[in-house]
Amino acid sequence: MIKIFFYILLILFPITTNAISLQEIRDNPTRFKYIYADNRGDGYVDISSINVIRYAPPYYVINSSLYLVDYSKGAIAQINSTYFYDYSQNVTSTLEKSKNKAEFTNKILKYAGIKHKINSMPTYDFSGNVLSTTPYSGNLTTPALLSPAYTAAMFSFYNSYNEYFNPPDKHQKF
């Protein structure tokens, strides 16, 4: 009986140690950087989760965790992602290569030098109880400009290299 209890405890241990509550996010502004807001919620990057995987200019790869607080659903999604950067395709490089404003705008809206993949996405209630764990296949996608994933990628790059990958939005000074 004790052996079964021990195995159950071992299985549940990783779930409980990674749980996050809204209070923990709010009480630790030096760990959780507030980077995003819209009409449904807020976004925070866990600074301690930022990890440079590849530094081979113009290519970079960084892992980090984005916490999206959804007030309408009373939930927090922990989005553990890998960001892939191509500096030769960033906004500044694309502007230099574009023939006119329309071409530049069209290119940037399609691809601003960043792709990402979601590695996992556990979801918690505001008290830190696990609601779900969502497995992901790791499909590479291009985040929309100024979306939570794009903003998290921008902050992760800035935090790693103390420079902006793309020029920041006027509300995006890290």
Rank of each mutant, 00 (worst) to 15 (best):
N39R: 07
N39D: 11
R40M: 03
D42V: 02
G43A: 06
G43R: 08
Y44P: 07
Y44M: 09
V45W: 07
V45R: 03
V45E: 02
D46Y: 08
D46K: 07
I47H: 01
I47Y: 02
S48K: 11
S48P: 03
S49M: 05
I50M: 01
N51D: 10
N51K: 13
N51Y: 07
V52Y: 08
I53L: 09
I53M: 12
R54K: 13
R54Q: 12
R54P: 02
R54A: 03
Y55T: 07
Y55V: 05
Y55I: 02
A56L: 06
P57I: 00
P57H: 01
P58A: 00
Y59W: 09
Y59N: 14
Y59I: 07
V61L: 05
I62T: 09
I62M: 08
I62W: 11
N63M: 03
N63F: 06
N63R: 08
S64G: 14
S65T: 13
L66Q: 07
Y67H: 12
L68F: 15
V69N: 01
D70H: 08
Y71F: 13
Y71Q: 03
S72R: 13
S72Q: 13
S72K: 14
S72M: 12
K73S: 10
G74M: 14
I76F: 01
A77Y: 11
Q78I: 00
Q78L: 11
N80M: 13
N80D: 15
N80K: 10
S81F: 01
S81A: 11
T82S: 15
T82M: 14
Y83S: 02
F84K: 05
F84S: 04
Y85I: 06
Y85C: 06
Y85V: 08
Y85W: 12
Y85R: 02
D86K: 01
D86N: 05
Y87S: 11
S88R: 12
S88V: 03
S88L: 10
S88E: 12
N90H: 03
V91A: 09
V91L: 13
V91P: 00
T92F: 02
S93E: 13
T94D: 12
T94I: 11
T94F: 08
T94K: 13
L95H: 09
E96M: 12
E96N: 13
S98P: 05
S98H: 03
K99V: 10
K99E: 14
K101T: 11
K101C: 08
A102T: 12
A102K: 14
A102N: 15
E103H: 03
E103G: 00
E103P: 02
F104I: 04
T105R: 14
T105A: 15
T105K: 14
N106A: 08
K107H: 01
I108H: 06
I108T: 03
I108C: 04
L109K: 15
L109H: 15
K110S: 15
Y111N: 14
Y111H: 13
A112Y: 04
A112D: 09
G113A: 09
G113L: 06
I114F: 11
K115Y: 10
H116S: 11
K117H: 12
K117Q: 15
I118Q: 01
I118Y: 03
N119F: 04
N119S: 10
M121P: 00
M121A: 05
M121V: 05
M121F: 01
